[in-house]
Design a protein around this nucleic acid. Structure first.
Lengths: 129, 129
DNA sequence: GATAATCTTTCCAGTAACTGGAAGGTCAAG
DNA sequence: CTTGACCTTCCAGTTACTGGAAAGATTATC
């Protein structure tokens, strides 16, 4: 499939997809006309990149995560410990998102334009867990 | 408090804190010696920035969220709808993180170095919800 | 079959959000 | 009063895109 189609399915702009190829995150086939030809598996990788980038993982982290399910010859222990550490990171991110959510909920519930100078939200907004 | 202290408490490097000042996210006082002097409220903002940046919100989104609890004169409806839309974004992010988590769990459970070329993880990694 | 619209290609420059390093001023300890 | 750990500004470099030009390929319309 062409890049436009891959872009639509992955949610990433074509520009970004080409950039990801430049930095070696994937290597799609080329059609006879020179156009990039993306497989279903390529699209899965792109979609994966789209998500994890949007959730605060760096490109290098994404590269590792992609390698994780591509390097089939890797030792099981390696793979597991890598995935495990990312799982912990994700746990932490979910907790932080919940705290952010609480903060915004407090904001909605308690501050309707009439709050005092030292609104308690200020104490909460930094996530005092 | 000096920038080093603010850096420690917020989890942001001093460089980044100065950069955030450059782009107008906060304006700490200055001591007589010219050193930046951060208030507790400044540190809350920095901590807030540290978190939301790490969770995939852009600097401009963070600027809006900061404005949201600083602009005390704003119409309540404005504030609420803004916070509300961010809440929805956060909901979506939490769901995406859970899906990422599932993907990694499957990876750990099913792929210990002996998977076939078309590992089912590939289907899952893109989050087919 | 010409032509126009809509792809696609590469390349190069610009932006966003930092990050590192130099050159120099300030401060607290010994 | 000097040493070391701070702090300052400024300028250059990096990461991760993003926009635009110039040109070739494909598809739609006349």
């Amino acid at each position: 499939m062409n890049i436009g189609n891959a872009s639509e399915r992955s949610g990433l702009p074509a520009k970004t997809i080409r950039y990801y190829e430049d930095i070696g995150l994937l290597k799609p086939d080329r059609s006879d006309n020179g156009y990039r030809d993306y497989s279903v598996s390529d699209v899965h990788k792109l979609r994966f990149l789209q998500r994890s980038r949007g959730l605060g993982f760096s490109v290098e982290e994404c590269r590792q995560l992609l390698a994780l399910y591509e390097d089939k010859d890797r030792a099981s222990a390696d793979v597991k410990s890598m995935a495990q550490s990312k799982l912990h990171e994700i746990d932490r991110k979910i907790i932080e998102l919940r705290e952010l959510q609480q903060t915004l909920n407090h904001l909605i519930a308690h501050c309707h334009g009439d709050q005092r100078p030292d609104c308690p939200i200020l104490e909460n907004i930094s996530g005092n867990s």
